[in-house]
Amino acid sequence: MANQQLVMYEEELQQMIAVCEQLYRDANGKAVLVIDKNGQAIAQSGEVEHLDVTSLSSLTAGNVAATGGIASLLAEKEFAGQFHEGERTNVHISIVAQRLILLVLFDERSSLGLVRLRVRKAAIELTAILDRLTKKTEAGSQPSIFAEITDDDIDNLFND
């Protein structure tokens, strides 16, 4: 089975949020999002209260998947970064450790060069957190929620 479940714990989530906040400040960004490659929003920082983070995450993942498809057609491993230029908001998208997507929204207060530079550092930190997370999950050091869930719990969810 190709399913590789992503499990997030409080400690690592806080670390990822801290990386987002640092990047948001260092890059003079508008917002920073960490997204799972399958489109699930993981962590964010900055001016996100008016953003539809769920939709943005899904569309970004779709965009990255489509770009990955183009890469494989061209016999490229992947296109690690993407940049979209808007009138007011620019978007920088990068793939981290082939598993996460790091999205930075920025405007004229910043520049593509600065964002690229800061993203590089953040990507290294996110990779390290992801490695720790993977080891923690594999070690099974945390009790699984699913050990507690019964068939009745699942049935009850679907009772009208």
Binding site: Q5, V7, M8, L13, Q40, I42
Partner: peptide, 15 residues
Amino acid sequence: MSFINYSSREINCKI
């Protein structure tokens, strides 16, 4: 690929 978030207490799945 489900995403289990113990921090926000969410189970996310894709259909």
